[in-house]
Amino acid sequence: MTFELALRAPELTGAGHGRDDTANHRLAVVGLTASYGRSPAITEVSLSLESRSVTAFIGPSGCGKSTLLRTFNRLHEVTPGARVTGAVRLDGIDLYDPRVDPVTVRRRIGMVFQRPNPFPTLSIRDNVLAGIRLQYRRLRPSGADELVEAMLTAVGLWDEVKDCLGRPGISLSGGQQQRLCIARVIAVAPDVILMDEPCSSLDPVSTAAIEELMVNLGRDYTVVVVTHNLQQAARVSRKTAFFTVAGAGEPGRLVEYGDTAGLFSAPSKAQTADYLAGRFG
């Protein structure tokens, strides 16, 4: 499959920091609390994510699952007044260690957002290469062509756009834009890919394409998906974490974390069962 070929060829990605495919990319969260100003959005989360697989975060809105996700690439702290306590470890190193540069963290941990957000002034081709440029890295022109083709192939977009690479990225449909954004993320060869409700603004056909892509990405990357869609979590993830929130103004908490199949068929907490049965949220 061309897809896997592309993803398993790190020399194609032109990665300066040398993505190490033998490493685990294991992400572990220890006693993490994230707040906006004084009020915590999510509190006391500890969990260890399985490497090279898809993990889903589910829960009612306001439970802080997106906030938690944004602490994994230190994007939470960009919001004024936002604070984080606790630790997030990537292969044993705390991302919040004072010696760690948040910019380096984001190069290792990529993110796909809720709304597709290709750069409006850039062409499709330049959108794929945007991460490389933004990281001040240089590519030979031929290397750039190879990389663009490989990444667009990997997200299943190559055949659709190969004749119009110079068109602006925002001229694509919503689903195509989101795949372009995924191509942009994998082009910089991260270890972990965070996805914040990546299908919530897409139609069912595009959603199916992205879901298939998630499953494929899970073979090479540690993928974390925040989703509202329980069926989606069941379809794409190996493990699922369920979060909930007691009420408005309360912080979200982790309720249950385990194998997706087990959690959906036999949840161990009543709250989880209620949520899965559609009784709240």
């Binding site: 994007l75 960009v78 910019v103 380096t104 984001r106 190069r107 993110m111 957000n117 991460g131």
Partner: peptide
């Protein structure tokens, strides 16, 4: 738009790079 800033920041761009590009 914030989502463009976040897109660039999430791709590992430093602050000046986000501003410039």
């Amino acid at each position: 738009p914030t989502d463009l800033r976040e897109a660039a920041t999430g791709l590992g761009a430093s602050r000046p790079a986000v501003i410039a590009t």
